[in-house]
């Protein structure tokens, strides 16, 4: 059974249709890259999967592990193993990064019928995970994302990912704005988390990330749809040729589909 199956998804944001009939199937163990120009609907897709309520799904369905994903509240999705790494992680003053994660992990464990982790076990567990993203211990005790640099925020997202141990992780432009060292750290973190039971959807604007996180499938998203899918060679083609050729193709097909005047 596939882990995620999106069929004919249509999404409206403030009266404007952003996603216009999107299909995507992701199997366990796979890494999918979704690329596309600005405004193509990539981030909207990520947010809809995580359950952002302001986005209105007008048609289509999404099955996650065989269940209707769209019926679930954002926290229920997280507890079912879905994780979104935010493009712009939020600063939360006064709430410590590590204690927050403990509360989040325990909410997830409780949902799964597991025992809550006590402070000692949690700290041991968290220290393991920190090594993955080479997080400085001082960032553990700071308030969530407060005063973090851009790179630290992105690393913190991958750190959250590793601690919460999801089955499907969606990375929304986690690579944007990172220098090469930070990019490598983030990629190494993701690569070390790849497993036969876990799948990734990596949304990116830049092919460069895919040199480090090698995807199984690459999708080009234009005008709210996936218009081309392929292997990692598609990423190179997009890097070389840009999106104009795909945009033209979309325009032509829309013209052809429109009733003639």
């Amino acid at each position: 059974m596939s882990m995620l199956e999106i069929k004919n998804l249509h999404v409206r944001v403030e009266e404007q249709e952003i996603i216009k009939g999107l299909d995507l199937t992701v199997n366990p163990g796979e890494v999918h890259a979704v690329m596309g120009p600005n405004g193509s609907g990539k981030s909207t897709l990520a947010q809809v999967l995580a359950g952002k309520e302001e986005y209105e799904v007008t048609a289509g369905e999404v099955h996650y592990k065989g269940e209707e994903l769209l019926e679930l509240a954002p926290e229920e999705r997280a507890r079912e193993g879905l994780f979104l790494a935010f493009q712009y992680p939020v600063e939360i003053p006064g709430v410590s990064n590590v204690y927050f994660l403990k509360a989040a992990l325990n909410a997830i464990r409780k949902h799964r019928g597991q025992e809550e982790m006590d402070a000692m076990d949690f700290l041991t567990y968290v220290r393991e995970k920190m090594k993955l993203v080479k997080m400085d211990e001082s960032l553990l005790n700071r308030p969530v994302n407060e005063g973090f640099s851009g790179g630290e925020k992105k690393r913190n997202e991958i750190f959250h990912l590793s601690v919460l141990d999801p089955t499907l992780a969606v990375l929304d432009e986690t690579d944007s704005g990172l220098d090469i060292d930070a990019l490598k750290i983030v990629s190494d973190g993701v690569n070390s988390l790849r497993s036969p039971d876990r799948a990734f959807i990596v949304i990116t604007h830049y092919q460069r990330l895919l040199n480090y996180i090698v995807p199984d499938k690459v999708h080009a998203m234009v005008g709210g749809r996936i218009v081309e899918s392929g292997g990692k060679e598609l990423a190179h083609k997009l890097e070389e040729k840009g999106y104009a050729w795909l945009e033209e193709r979309v325009a032509e097909s829309e013209l052809a589909a429109a009733p003639s005047a």
Binding site: A50, G51, K52, A73, E75, R79
Partner: peptide, 8 residues
């Protein structure tokens, strides 16, 4: 939304 997406 950010906090809910973490399971809170």
């Amino acid at each position: 939304f950010y906090l809910r997406s973490r399971g809170i």
